[in-house]
Amino acid sequence: MKDIKIKVNDLSLYYGDKKALNEITMDIPANKVTALIGPSGCGKSTFLRCINRMNDLIPSVSITGKMLVEGVDIYDKNVDVVNIRKKIGMVFQKSNPFPKSIYENIAYGPRINGMKDKTELDEIVETSLRQAAIWDELKDRLDDSALGLSGGQQQRLCIARTLAVSPDIILMDEPASALDPISTSKIEELVHQLKEQYTIIIVTHNMQQAARTSDHTAFFYMGNLIEMGKTNSIFTKPVQKQTEDYITGRFG
């Protein structure tokens, strides 16, 4: 794989004494969608949260190994975690807009980063909403509360909010699991369009969603990375029996 965005070397994560991730080594390519699949508790979300150091917030967590983002080890003590999270945005399973207007939700990030110019902010709000394919639906109600939007709209608003701070990488943890099929298909289409500019890593329980949206798929089981490869290969001719058993529903 050329143009590697994230290089993971022997990364292990412990919750206290319990090892939740076991020496994960993988390369995540730039400007591609990488799906993380596996049964509940396999470590895929834990791994996703390692990529922008969200696990730092859990006191018992300790991490060994390396997570190199564009060659920089993000767990190096000299690295500023705030800068990491600016560069690596995240979208969660449940949409979590701020209890503010649609406009303020998007403008919030750039504003706390020091941007004050109204014209610039307006531009960012419009660009972000357009990128998230929701501008046409919301352009006439930017001052309305974000909490009044539908679930699907709220999730796309959260994606737009992530885009507003110009990240390089977007992490998505089950971004469509609470949405209806139409909203899900909009999110999936959006993921497809966004990969031109961003590196996207998506955790999903929905096997077909992984197959539809991603270029590469990594299968996790019990804290181990069992297999990673091109999505087309993983879903047509997986190498490992455990992968085959999982994707064909014969697991356990």
């Binding site: 096997m207 077909q208 197959a211 879903f235 047509t236 001719k237 997986p238 085959e244 994707i247 064909t248």
Partner: peptide, 9 residues
Amino acid sequence: QQPVASDLR
């Protein structure tokens, strides 16, 4: 069923 892998083949 949306078969995959050996089932699909």
